[in-house]
């Protein structure tokens, strides 16, 4: 029976010691321990958060870098494309200009040739006229060597005039 009967004296000592241990530990042990545990947990959480943030930032930076590189590459491509186009254009333009020039020159040549032709024709005409005159003179001289002949001609002209 003694085993299951709480002894009054022991109850008293237990009440005293447990109260004491509760008060002392609450004030001098649990408060600092729990506070610093909390603090540490918070600082760990904060550090993890910061690390996560840093990682995100780095990722963003990396993404930015990549974007910049991509953009630069596109720019380069564009510039090259443009250069190529310009080259083609220039070549084309040059070709066109050259052909135009050639056309012009041909035209000019043609005009010149025509002018020369006309001039030559003129000259030929003049020469032909000259020659004809000379031939006519010669013929006339031969024909009008005798006076009868001359008389005859005058008469003819006169007749012509009269007719008019």
């Amino acid at each position: 029976m003694e085993l299951v009967t709480p002894d009054a004296g022991l109850l008293f000592w237990m009440l005293l010691s447990f109260t004491l241990v509760l008060i002392v530990l609450k004030k001098f042990a649990w408060k600092p321990i729990l506070n610093s545990l909390k603090e540490r947990e918070e600082s760990i959480a904060e550090a993890l958060h910061a690390a996560e943030k840093a990682r995100e930032e780095m990722e963003k930076l990396k993404a930015d870098n990549e974007a910049i590189i991509r953009k630069a590459r596109a720019e380069r491509e564009k510039i090259l494309q443009e250069a190529r186009e310009i080259k083609i254009k220039i070549v084309e333009q040059a070709k066109e200009e050259a052909s135009q020039e050639a056309q012009k020159m041909i035209e000019l040549a043609r005009v010149n040739i025509r002018n020369e032709e006309a001039k030559a024709l003129e000259q030929i005409k003049a020469q032909v006229a000259d020659l004809s005159i000379r031939i006519a003179e010669k013929i006339l001289r031969e024909k009008l060597g005798d006076s009868t002949e001359q008389q005859k001609l005058v008469e003819k002209y006169l007749n012509d005039l009269q007719l008019n």
Partner: peptide, 15 residues
């Protein structure tokens, strides 16, 4: 009780 108080106040000090 003494042991308990000693153990936990000493680790509290470390904390």
């Amino acid at each position: 009780v003494i042991l308990l108080i000693w153990i936990f106040t000493s680790i509290a000090r470390r904390y």
